[in-house]
Design a protein around this nucleic acid. Structure first.
Lengths: 210, 210
DNA sequence: TAGATTGTTAATCGATTAACAATC
DNA sequence: TAGATTGTTAATCGATTAACAATC
């Protein structure tokens, strides 16, 4: 029943995020329209890739004058509109957890952290804009705020146990910072961020003579 | 001259990190030897993938009795040995920067943060085990500690300017947390971690009926 | 209209998986 | 030895790129 999940961000979705970032940049610089060639160059992909991606997501341009930046931004936001104002919880208030509850950009992207949890009672007294609660209150909060997604930032030894609790309480998506391959039912989405792996990779490539 | 870089973690390298994690787990459970099948199952890939990866990195097993866990761990560590005890700096001491300088796991993986930097003088008085210095001292520290890799955690508006300074000072690898596509010379390694994109992706897939 | 760009289909490229000989 | 597993080559699959007709 429990199964290893693989890594979820599809490449085309990731590129869509990148395009949005670039489009906001172009707009800020005063551009109104854009060609697949310009956007591709900025985003670090080919023009064909850009057109192909838009084609997959049914985003249309104009055969002569390219794409209107506002239309593209609107179309991309439309793809993600159901994700807006979703409630998220953070479990584990160590260094990473604390940073994430205070991370301003989630709000700008309309993702709302409603509560955080930690087993350590001394952390529960502290406040970072949102309350830090004991683990026992998780079920109640998940129900109250219809939370579907949790950020898991507990120590690696307790990661699997905590993930099991989250799934039992109705969480269907986990952004996991613990360096552990979580085993969850296969309808649960897990995405892993391993900061050590990321940093070590960069070091690896800088050391490597290419 | 300046060029957009793409995303650096090669899939096989990423899997190597995953294998290491799994192997440590197996070892802890008392295992001594392992088959490609077991490791694949634990890591969420096929047995063929495991054998292929080991083949690429010239890691040998035994045709009857599989792989010795200690040999595998040793071989994987050998691949990354030149990365050990590399010095790293953190630029930007906001939420993310602060969390990273206090992140214990980097040390366990033999990556050493030697200093951090922030333009805000009020942050420079604070200490998190390592000193927070004014940006002007960056060149000196980079030279003194032979730093090649920087973690970039400044606000998005200053990310490109800061990256330019880093490259000028001799940094060749950047782990970038700012939601910006950095333009750097093409011999510079850039890896991007975009926390909003990661969280939004998880939400996207949980909302999507599949 | 002529030229340039999109949108889509076909070709290519790379990565994963299958097959199987080698061999412990 | 017989059976099982590795290691590598070939086949498949999927993603990216090229080509080009449609069209503004």
């Amino acid at each position: 029943m429990k199964q290893v999940t693989k890594h979820v961000i599809r490449n085309d979705l990731k590129r869509l995020f990148t395009y949005r970032l670039c489009l906001i940049g172009f707009k800020r610089k005063g551009f109104d329209r854009i060609y697949s060639y310009n956007l591709g160059e900025e985003a670090g992909v080919t023009a064909e890739q850009v057109r192909k991606d838009f084609s997959v997501f049914k985003i249309k341009g104009n055969k002569k004058s390219g794409y209107k930046i506002n239309d593209l931004l609107h179309a991309i936001n439309e793809i993600f509109k159901y994700q807006h104002n979703q409630h998220v919880i953070v479990v584990g208030m160590g260094n990473i957890g604390k940073a994430l509850v205070q991370y301003k950009r989630f709000i700008l992207r309309k993702m709302v952290i409603v509560a955080s949890f930690d087993i350590d009672p001394s952390k529960q007294s502290k406040r970072f804009g949102i309350p830090v609660m004991p683990m026992e209150m998780m079920g109640e909060i998940i129900k109250k705020f219809h939370v579907k997604v949790a950020i898991l930032a507990v120590p690696d030894i307790s990661a699997q146990d905590t993930a099991n609790i989250l799934v039992d309480q109705g969480i269907t998506g986990i952004l996991n910072f613990a360096p552990v391959i979580l085993k969850v039912p296969d309808d649960i989405i897990v995405s892993n961020i391993n900061l050590c792996d990321e940093l070590e990779s960069v070091i690896y490539y800088t050391q490597k003579v290419m």
